[in-house]
């Protein structure tokens, strides 16, 4: 094997960069969708809304027990067919690989986030609810201003850890022929034959981003521990 040549990374950088941007965008969008949906799912279960909460529980169980890559496949092939049937003419309506990725990752993450938030909701001290009642706050204001902010603070380290995993999982979009950071690196590696350099470079990028995020998680934990939000 010939000696390592890292100048190749500089040349490859613009392409890697676009892959990285896609990974970051996918992580951001999916975690926002996941958080919003996941919070709704958690609340539905918390309030034990009849029927809906059973459906949500089933959905979460399914999502958590099958690999993301399968969900991606299904979504990519099945949803266009379902949409086609719904629209009436029976012909599949393609939704495109990028949308599929954003929506699927979001739906998938929702299942994980909702479990985190559900546990967080249960951990809130009973006295907090009673204080809200005594102050005559509405249920909406109670959750919006008192309960959920505490849940998010307590759960934010775990939510962020989950998001780091999501960021690493974005590489699965190769099954939809989309190119994320890892995808970009492997395509280039096949073209220029510089496998070691390429895979080293992306490993470093993953390492830097993930450990920066972990660092942030640790600092959050410390901050909220000091503010006494953790119990």
């Amino acid at each position: 094997m010939n000696s390592l040549d890292f100048s190749i990374i500089l040349q490859a950088w613009p392409y890697l960069w676009s892959g990285l941007l896609f990974s970051l965008a996918l992580t951001a969008v999916a975690s926002i969708i996941g958080l919003i949906l996941g919070t709704c799912f958690a609340l539905v279960q918390h309030f034990e809304v009849p029927v809906v909460s059973q459906i949500v529980r089933g959905y979460i169980a399914v999502m958590r027990s099958i690999p993301l890559i399968l969900v991606l496949f299904w979504f990519f092939f099945l949803v266009p067919i379902v949409l086609g049937h719904l629209s009436g003419n029976g012909r599949p309506i393609p939704i495109g690989a990028t949308y599929t990725a954003f929506i699927t990752f979001g739906l998938f993450e929702a299942a994980y986030y909702s479990e985190i938030i559900r546990v967080g909701l249960r951990a809130v001290n009973k006295g907090q609810f009673e204080a809200c009642q005594a102050l005559s706050l509405s249920t909406f204001d109670t959750y919006r201003n008192v309960i959920l902010p505490q849940v998010f603070r307590v759960a934010s380290p775990i939510i962020l850890s989950q998001t780091i995993i999501l960021f690493q999982d974005t590489s699965l979009v190769y099954v939809l022929s989309l190119t994320d950071l890892l995808g970009a690196a492997s395509k280039l590696a096949q073209l220029n034959g510089r496998l070691v350099e390429m895979y080293l470079a992306v490993a470093v990028v993953y390492l830097v981003i993930s450990s920066a995020a972990s660092q942030f998680v640790a600092s959050l934990r410390k901050r909220y521990a000091l503010a006494g939000v953790h119990r």
């Binding site: 001290n125 006295g127 907090q128 503010a227």
Partner: peptide, 29 residues
């Protein structure tokens, strides 16, 4: 609204400052 209550375990809102603890219900309710 007519009845204020003080608990043994205070039950202040830990994520809000002291003054915000006092402002929340008057604003919302």
């Amino acid at each position: 609204c007519e009845v204020g209550m003080v608990f043994q375990s205070f039950n202040l809102f830990p994520h809000l400052s002291v003054v915000e603890n006092c402002m929340l219900a008057p604003m919302k309710v």
